[in-house]
C-alpha cells in the first residue's frame, strides 16, 4: 500500500487529506495521472510538486509499497 497526502486546495476538492493505492510500484507521474483520472475536478494536481517520504521528487521517480507520497500545491507560507 502507498499512502498519498493531499494539501490545501487539493485536499479540499478531493474531500480528504489521504488516499491509498494498493500497488507495489508506481512512478510519481503515474500517480499524478491516476489522481487526475479519479478526481477530474482537481485541477491543481498538475501544478503540484510531489514529495516522497518528505523530500521533493520528480515525476520519473519510482514509489514503492510503504512509501509516503505528498502532492504539494504552490506554497504560500511566511
Amino acid at each position: 500500500m502507498i499512502r498519498i497526502l493531499l494539501f490545501a486546495e487539493l485536499e479540499e476538492t478531493v474531500g480528504k487529506r489521504e488516499v491509498e493505492l494498493t500497488v507495489d510500484e508506481i512512478s510519481v507521474g503515474e500517480i499524478r495521472k491516476k489522481l487526475t483520472d479519479d478526481y477530474p475536478n482537481v485541477k491543481g494536481i498538475q501544478s503540484a510538486m510531489a514529495a516522497i517520504n518528505e523530500e521533493y521528487a520528480e515525476d520519473n521517480v519510482l514509489v514503492h509499497r510503504g512509501d509516503l507520497v505528498a502532492f504539494i500545491p504552490p506554497v504560500s507560507g511566511g
Binding site: 490545501a8 514529495a51 504539494i72 506554497v75 504560500s76
Partner: peptide, 22 residues
C-alpha cells in the same frame, strides 16, 4: 520559506475565500 516550505495560506476575504498559490 516562500519557495520550498510546504505551508499554505487560505485567505478569507469579505466576499469569499481562496487558497493562495503564492
Amino acid at each position: 520559506i516562500k519557495e520550498i516550505v510546504p505551508i499554505w495560506k487560505k485567505e478569507h476575504w469579505e466576499d469569499g475565500e481562496e487558497w493562495i498559490g503564492d
